[in-house]
Design a protein around this nucleic acid. Structure first.
Lengths: 332, 332
DNA sequence: GGGTAGCATGGTTGCGCTACCATGCCCGGT
DNA sequence: ACCGGGCATGGTAGCGCAACCATGCTACCC
């Protein structure tokens, strides 16, 4: 008695050829109803479970896509990944998570190496950090790859929210309220997204001929927002645009500590609209990224690329939306 | 010229038998150094990539574990999953994500069904919601399963943070500060964790012979914390223990709206210590769950169970820790 | 110097499934 | 009645890899 029944067992038991059982298992049309139900019944009775490895070996594709990610901690990343998983599942694909960095200190290259073994039909790189160009070269050929939130050069498809547009909206919102300028707390230099937001913020100020204050560089975490506040206030800040919500939370906290009224004395804007952005005090004005849309577009594009490897690469920019809440107002 | 080189190609090219190439690919010890490097060189030159499907078919195991999850949105869940992925990767295992609910409304049963196809060696169920008993019966036999944060009965291994202990610590902390009683905002009834926290909170009050206020039921989201506050205040609350951090954020926000000082007039405690719990205003006193430890223990236990299917089930309770910050103080 | 331990290597086989093509049946058209 | 088309079904083969056991070789021991 073998451990687990195979299609051959089912076929023998049901009195059909293995291929017919296979057709039933795959829901093929051209099977007689009586035969189908007999096979189905036998499968149930035997407790048949298709072996995906065998199927993948025979068909050459795995119905699985790999998601390479550097950080499972960042709320935005997790959100994106969740949406990718859902979108993939809807299309009958499974998602395998491949972490960039292990605690032992494995590198990006190793993650790619891992990818080459995984038996995935394609991959999505969700990297908040910029990848060095020479590591991206090590991507295994023949595996379609899509980048989210990272510069991948022209050779790969990059899908991302409209970072520049969002930063522009945030900055213009504050200026339109009457602030003389806007102070920015940037994300880390390694992040393409952070650099795009920084550049767009600067651009708006320059376009309007306004003073461009020095922008401290944060690490995305709330503490770096917290720590940046004092210097910004010393520089006369009345409007602070943080490159993500977490840093904005840190800013809010420091302003509360100092007894500074928000938005009465200082306005604050974040970026991302993470899950609790509306639960802060005051509720945070921020730029909402359509993470679900990003995930959907990424999956859709990747599946097309899997079907046609020679599809030309093309980036997609997903629109963002300014969500005005209670942390912004006209200057005193 | 075939699409992708196989071990046989490598072997032929390197002048060895396929099995020798296989040994090199698997890092077996008993291969001559010269032979090994020659094969390795050939692999590199040919761009050989091992086919995991073939390997899994031949060995019978996939080096992959499935994570079934109902929600990719909850910060706690995502944190746990992230740690599972990391812990699994350290042990050479890959994680495949299997969502419970698709947008179309697939059910838990379908997720299990999907699991049976996935070709995983074992599975971890990360369910903040309680599973109905009869659905759990549909778990495919022969696939070791571990539950996190969900009641699985005695037939399965359940690993979880010490929900009761954490709730007890939170409640006692507030009482020890001098509050006459503690009001609780519970999580949804379907959640085992929420029910354990609720029961432990009630227990502490009863032990001390204190009044047990009515506990509103929330949905984990900040809005339900926000909405619960007014009734609690009307009931004379001076100390509010929310069943998770998000609801605590909602509580803080409502208290701010009402101009009530925290912790001067009302103390607030959360649960989880999510990523920005220390960035709220005031910084949130909360119960820290060791999500990383939960993930590690789950993987360790699951791998042992994969190696020995007949291992007796045994639950593990992972300790939690009260993190006292600025949202709690003695009553006015 | 003979025996043997220990190591590197190879041949064969089968994991479970599906692709490809062939076959046989029933049906309607003329 | 004959022929051809459409449909259900089957036979055979192979996907890429590792398990099993056998073989040949070296080196070492007494």
């Amino acid at each position: 008695m073998r451990r687990t029944p195979s299609l051959a067992d089912v076929a023998r038991e049901a009195g059909v050829a293995p291929i017919t059982a296979s057709r039933v298992a795959n829901g093929a049309e051209n099977v007689d109803e009586a035969t189908r139900s007999r096979v189905l019944d036998t499968m149930g009775r035997l407790g048949y479970r298709p072996n995906l490895a065998a199927r993948a070996l025979a068909t050459g594709h795995f119905k699985s896509i790999g998601v390479l990610t550097s950080s499972m901690r960042s709320p935005g990343n997790m959100w994106t990944i969740g949406e990718i998983v859902t979108a993939a599942a809807e299309r009958g694909y499974t998602v395998t998570l491949l972490p960039f960095e292990l605690r032992g200190g494995e590198t990006v290259v190793n993650a790619y190496d891992r990818l080459t073994h995984e038996g995935v039909d394609g991959a999505i790189v969700v990297a908040e950090r910029r990848l060095d160009d020479d590591t991206s070269i090590t991507l295994p050929p023949g595996v379609p790859v899509i980048f989210i939130d990272a510069g991948g050069g022209d050779e790969y498809t990059v899908i991302d929210s409209d970072q520049a547009g969002g930063a522009r909206m945030a900055t213009e919102h504050l200026l339109d309220l009457g602030h003389r300028t806007v102070h920015h707390i940037a994300g880390p230099r390694e992040s393409y997204a952070a650099m795009r937001r920084l550049a767009a913020w600067r651009r708006v100020l320059e376009e309007r001929g306004l003073r461009v204050p020095e922008a401290p560089i944060g690490d995305w975490r709330s503490t770096s927002g917290h720590e940046a506040v004092d210097a910004l206030l010393a520089d006369g800040a009345t409007a602070i645009f943080a490159a993500n919500d977490q840093m904005a939370f840190g800013v809010l906290q420091r302003l509360h500590e100092l007894g500074i009224d928000v938005p009465g004395q200082v306005s604050v804007v974040g970026f991302d609209d993470v899950i609790d952005a509306d639960a802060s005090w005051p509720p945070l004005t921020t730029v909402r990224q359509a993470f679900d849309e990003v995930g959907r577009v990424a999956i859709a594009d990747l599946l097309e690329r899997i079907a046609d490897h020679d599809r030309p690469t093309a980036g997609v920019v997903v629109p963002v939306q300014l969500i005005v809440r209670g942390s912004t107002a006209a200057p005193a």
